[in-house]
Design a binder for these strands. Sequence first.
DNA 1: ACATAACGCAACCTCCTGGTTGCATTTAAG
DNA 2: CTTAAATGCAACCAGGAGGTTGCGTTATGT
Lengths: 119, 119
Amino acid sequence: MSKTENNQANGKNDGDFSVIFAALGDSTRLALFDRLSDGKPRSISVLSDDADMTRQAVTKHLRVLEAAGLVQNHRMGRESHYAFCPDQLKQARAYLDHVAGRWDSALMRLKTFVEGDDG
Amino acid sequence: MSKTENNQANGKNDGDFSVIFAALGDSTRLALFDRLSDGKPRSISVLSDDADMTRQAVTKHLRVLEAAGLVQNHRMGRESHYAFCPDQLKQARAYLDHVAGRWDSALMRLKTFVEGDDG
DNA sequence: ACATAACGCAACCTCCTGGTTGCATTTAAG
DNA sequence: CTTAAATGCAACCAGGAGGTTGCGTTATGT
């Protein structure tokens, strides 16, 4: 089983957050993700309507989002509905929070060092 | 002036968060960014030492991070030091928070709808 | 039943990305 | 001054990403 498949299977990205960011790192995909964040699942055709590209292109983008765990797909009759999936978003937020926290504490240490230096 | 140049100049990405995510969407770059988040600026050589690729490759990655505003460069003598830059990180966090908030309120609306339906 | 809507698959193309190598330049060190 | 370190620049390359087109298949609707 490949790493990507494993990630999809257990819903984790064992520290490989770059996959999530890479999925969001395309304006088309970010727009799709943003649009789906209102909770309403949409079919590929609907999502393709106001995107200035082919349905196939949109399909590819949606699959990238799905592979990153940011979106879920459910086939309903002849339509394929994609829905927002918040788990990986929370993971990404937590990671960015962690990095920001490390930066803040580094700033804090620097501040106390400088203050202790002349105080 | 191109859009990218403008973004670098005023420090904003006028809604184009995909640039930030794209910069973080590579495991090598994410590792560099993560490593620099301790606040200590480092030279290209130092950053290249434990990366299993050429110094030139690392240089390219650092420039991508810099173009996204995630990192800053200062030439010190013959060394080029790259330092963490928290602004765009905060922007990205704020955006993800916004999306997550939209999702949460969508869930909330659904919940109250369902409760009002049978209650 | 038949037309058509919605989709999947596969081939194909172009361009960008990640990476390398070679060489020149600037700067520190002895 | 001479040598070596740290970097920049440019050319180059393979592979993947984004996108299109064509065609086949499955459901819907009338």
